[in-house]
Design a protein around this nucleic acid. Structure first.
Lengths: 111, 111
DNA sequence: CATTTAGTACGACGAGTGTCGAACTATAGC
DNA sequence: GCTATAGTTCGACACTCGTCGTACTAAATG
């Protein structure tokens, strides 16, 4: 049955619609993992990336897990297109809730 | 015997001396807990505070644990004076390693 | 329709975390 | 010296986290 995936999609758009209520601890926790920090750093070019197009030294399912954490914290948004899911940084939402935070994190993690 | 406390003191000054090697994931993790975020926020007036003088809704041992995490991440420094231990934010060290980060976190957690 | 590809869900595992109370150390004051 | 106070340490507990392999869904391709 296909209910599972439909539910997931709905949850995803729900994540987007309540993007205003970002939690600082949740965002900081999402950024506190080296793998996720690397993902965010690679996403910082502003372009959309698929999970597969990023360099992440973990298994596919682990990568999916990290993207979920980033999504649920509001750090990243996902757009489904055909077979692929394109991820992008939620730059403006983050800047609106925590001005300067993303810049500070990216500036130092990019070194 | 009193070796335990001597070791602890040495570890503390060791923490201070290698304050240069701050890890961004470690700092973000230290800041990702609500209790620790509150502690940092209360420490943001620049003054020194004892563990007891802060408003923290946890047991004494838990508070001590949180201060340890903050210390080991280099967010906070501790100075022993008589019976008390005075804690202060490591503002300049943090600013040197991760410019803008502390400001961004404090600006939003203070609301 | 069969196969491949991108990604998620699930279950399991070990490691880490936040919390507490109790025991402890060290200083201060009686 | 006894007692109170500030803080740490040490289990213990439930819970979360990062990781993986496997099974799965859905779309694309043969």
């Amino acid at each position: 049955m296909s209910l599972a995936f439909a539910d997931v999609r709905e949850a995803r758009s729900a994540e987007l619609s309540r993007a205003a209520e970002l939690s600082l601890p949740a965002v900081l926790h999402a950024l506190s993992d080296p793998v996720r920090l690397s993902i965010v750093s690679q996403l910082a070019d502003g372009a959309e990336h698929t999970c597969n197009s990023l360099e992440v030294p973990v298994a596919k399912s682990t990568c999916s897990h990290h993207f979920r954490v980033l999504r649920e914290a509001g750090v990243v948004a996902q757009r489904a297109d055909g077979k692929c899911r394109f991820n992008r940084l939620q730059v403006q939402a983050l800047e609106a809730s925590f001005p300067g935070l993303l810049d500070a994190v990216l500036r130092t993690s990019r070194r």
